[in-house]
Design a protein around this nucleic acid. Sequence first.
DNA 1: AGCACGCCGACT
DNA 2: GTCGGCGTGCTC
Length: 874
Amino acid sequence: MTKEGATAPSALYDGALLQGDLFGERRLYAQVIVDVPAKQTNRPFDYIVPPQLQSWVAVGSRVGVPFGPRTLQGFVVGMSDRTSMDAGKLKPVEQVLDLVPPLNPELVDLARWMSRTYICHEITALQAMIPGALKAKYEKMIAFAGEETHSPAGETGRQAYMFARSPEEENIVAFVKQKGAVPAEALLRRFPDASLMLRNLLEQGILAEINSVKDRMNAKKVLYVEAAADRATMLEQAEKLGAGAKRQKELMVFFAGQPEPLPLAELTEKLNISAGSVKALAEKGWLSVQEREVYRDPYAGRQFAKTEPLPLTDQQRGAFVPISAALEEREHRVFLLHGVTGSGKTEVYLQSIQQCLDQGREAIVLVPEISLTPQMVERFKSRFGDAVAVMHSRLSQGERYDEWRKIGTKQVSVVIGARSAVFAPFTKLGLIIIDEEHEASYKQEESPKYHARDVAVQRASHQGAVVVLGSATPSLESYARTNERSADRSPFQLLTMEDRVEGRPLPAVHIVDLREELKEGNRSMFSRGLYKAIEERLHKKEQTVLLLNRRGYSTFVMCRSCGYVVQCPHCDISLTYHQVSRTMRCHYCGLSEPEPKKCPSCESEHIRYFGTGTQRVEEELGKLFPGIRVIRMDVDTTSEKGAHERLLTRFRNKQADVLLGTQMVAKGLDFPDVTLVGVIAADTVLHLPDFRAAEKTFQLLTQVAGRAGRHKLPGEVFIQTYTPDHYSIVTASHHDYASFLETELEMRRERGYPPYCDLVLITFSHEQVPMLVRAGESFAVRLKDKWKRSGAGPAPERGGLCGRGVDAPYFEVYGPVASPIPRIKDRYRFQCMVKYRGDIDVSGMIAEVAAAFDDTVRQEKLQIGIDVNPQVLM
DNA sequence: AGCACGCCGACT
DNA sequence: GTCGGCGTGCTC
């Protein structure tokens, strides 16, 4: 309203504002992020909130809004009573999709932070926070639009045409009219050949298209039965029933003494009565049947023996006290709990959570997906009972949604789950625990490429919550931050637990030099030491875990005549032979083709299989130890739902002697009779082109070694390797994290890698190499230019990072170079790496350069993937 | 992402 | 002379 308008009386009585006021209505506008992940729509759009929806719309609501010609799902990210736009141009919010907003203002802020930090569209970040069941689904509805007689005069031609509708058209109109609105898909199913007629009817305006957001939140409904009269009446009426209605009589008597409603299913089972009897009585009006929403509880009917807090050891107490104090102060703190395997970290978690709950606050527990086993869940369910919601990928979409719903409705105060559980919509968050914080699975590989650890710290800092990062082998980034010296990042507090509970010794570790074995004439994949050890375990009826971080049968297949290696035609990677299916498979694009009988290149039949995979180890075990019972666990045997747990249960029940698998056998398993762990080839990870290769090797070896001798029986570990002197292997064999850390930090410093700098990886992919090189080079130039113009100083020389002072800002773009796997699914891949240190908004700079590339992306089908790894400086 | 509006080739 | 190609731009 203008100033003049405010002083002129006539204007005061004009306009929608006043009209609204007269009817006691408030003007309310919602800022909505719509479900279109594109640069141009990556901002809020304003909508009018109609009066009847005002009490339902809040920041965090999921709404259906008209957007251009269609209706889209969107999230409300702001509410206000004014708008910067001409209010006359605004459209109204059409639908509110949930009774309770699925997000809250804090999560909406977090999404904005994520979109900036990880360079993604805001809608992508918002979508990542809600369960898949709430993902938008759109539906075209056909509705009846009005009588043709309403057409204005003068359009007689049109009318005449309309009156000439065919009987089939009449049928369609009648059908739609009767139903009110019909999904277009359903209509075409009913009238399969009607698409042309439908188009005519739509053009004539007799029918209309309505786009709406289909509501996928299907709460499960169950029928409940209860008495519809008082006890006396029920008994009285029971007597009046005929002798033939024996079941009904029974039911009446039962409900006379049953004031509470009962689920129909339970009733029919308990009283051995058919639903028909209930229906008959309901029709007579003596019973009432209602629909009730229920939760699909995947743990329904399972009894969890209640456990009480265990007395803490001195060491556990040493860790618990500072956490407890921070909780008490309601202060945001991050603790790094460095505890060797078996030191009792879980009990510290449990008691910290208990304290958090006692304060009326809520807790999130993140665990790697793979260790989200029934045993793990059981420990939490046993302590906190129904206050726990469990979220993992093995749940059906509906189950997942129901668990999640319990958070919003305050039925639970603890969530345990994998990565995405960090977004649990709690409003009084007090504690976030991240178990095995070094695990790579906390990093999401698709957009938004977030790291759950970083998101957790971000969330906690806004809520005054405590974060506990637990690990036996903390990531260098986290460990470095306990020594933080930079001004703008607060340090993590280190808590250490060095001893195993009850003083159980760490297992003895033998490093086996495979070169020596070869010299001695042992060409088998098992060293003599490991062979003997397995044999011994078979005799003693103890169990063995074998780790080989490579699935399939053999890693590559080569022709010995010409040296041809069978490769994937779509990816630059050799194919792996799978014995079970007798196929060659690509582990990157999933291609599967029959094994070659002769060399595709020279037709020779001298084809040999090189490299060992889990399938081959399994076969070999069977040959060496006839009758041995082996469970193989890798992606190929655990893809089926519940297979993972089934295999572990079998092993636990001692239905197998050996558990053989890829890294998934290394994580968090705890079997009392496992006394031997064998690592078939420790170097598989070590030589990957990854600056974290040594760290990953150390972590993997330490984790898997921790699987042996966790209970009464002492454990033994064999690590087979061709590089027995490598520091990651040597230090892992001594369970010596401190020494590993020291050496690895020195390596990182020399090479200029995290935690001495932050990294961002930018990958480009395209079907043609020239395009890719041009784009990558142009990107790098523009990025360097941006840095220069920011006036932050000259880019240092290459390698200049080494030995630089702690506070010196640094920025360098490396590349573009071909990616480690130069082609996947027929697309070539190049990458640039940005190394920097200091408080530089690199994400912002990259986002701007990427935005300038948008046209290229559209026209040339160039794909730019940006992987932001905000690391920690030392 | 869709969808409309807007300037240049092969057709009634 | 028109129908239609997809290049640019907008969606509260």
